Simulated assay, not measured.
Amino acid sequence: MEAFIARKRRKAMSEINVVPYIDVMLVLLIIFMVTAPLITQGVDVDLPQADAQPLPEDSRQPLVASVDREGNYYLNLGDNQDQPMSAVDVATLVAAHLRMDPETPVVVRGDGNVAYAQVVQLMVLLQRAGAPKVGLMTQPPE
């Protein structure tokens, strides 16, 4: 009789082990968290949908940040408006002015022959200085 030892029959396991799936999902989450900021780079700009309209007469005097074809920055604030400024000086002056008057419109005026990258760098600089919206100054067609 010893040959017939009572064996317990194992029941079929009906549960799914989800631990490996959780590990995969956490790895994917980390990958997406790292790559998402790299994909979404850009400058928020409100571009007109139709012909550009001039600023209203009753609006505040805008801050005009300019970049010439050599990549020099200018700002219509201070005593030396016709002297080139460093990026740090432009950011400091714009941030100080926007702290005093946050409703001031900010406009970028770029030379027609300047590299696009220079205009974008100026817009990023103004955005980091606290400008909520940055407009582009244009000349009407003749």
Rank of each mutant, 00 (worst) to 15 (best):
Q83C: 01
G42T: 13
Q83A: 10
L136A: 12
L98E: 10
Q49E: 11
L38C: 07
A117Q: 09
L126W: 05
R7K: 10
D82E: 14
Q41A: 03
D44W: 13
T35G: 01
N80T: 02
V120G: 02
V24D: 02
A131I: 13
A65M: 04
T138S: 10
E142G: 14
L29Y: 05
E2A: 08
G71Q: 04
P54D: 05
M100E: 13
N17E: 01
Q83P: 02
M13I: 07
V108K: 05
Q49W: 07
R7S: 14
Q81T: 14
Q49M: 06
V120K: 12
H97S: 12
E103I: 08
M1Y: 08
V19P: 06
E2I: 11
N17I: 07
L29G: 15
R99I: 04
M33V: 13
R9F: 01
D68C: 00
A91C: 03
K11T: 04
E2G: 10
I31R: 00
Q61F: 10
P62E: 05
R128Y: 07
A129S: 15
V108R: 06
P141V: 14
P84C: 08
A131R: 08
T35Q: 01
P102D: 14
L38I: 10
V24R: 14
L47T: 08
A87Y: 00
A117K: 14
A36R: 11
M33T: 06
H97Q: 15
I16P: 04
L136N: 09
V114H: 12
E15Q: 04
A36T: 07
D51H: 05
G112T: 07
Y21H: 07
V120S: 09
T104F: 01
P140N: 03
V119R: 03
M13S: 06
E70D: 04
G112Y: 09
L63F: 01
Y116S: 13
L126S: 02
G135E: 04
A50Y: 13
L28W: 11
N17G: 00
S86T: 15
R7M: 11
E70F: 08
V119L: 10
A91G: 14
V134S: 13
P105L: 09
L77T: 09
V27W: 07
D51L: 00
R99F: 11
M123D: 12
P141K: 11
M1T: 07
M13W: 08
Y74P: 04
Y21S: 09
G78M: 12
V114A: 15
A65P: 10
A50Q: 12
A36H: 08
D44L: 14
P84H: 02
P140S: 05
P140I: 01
F4K: 14
K8A: 12
E70M: 05
A117C: 02
L28V: 15
P102K: 10
V43Y: 05
L26F: 13
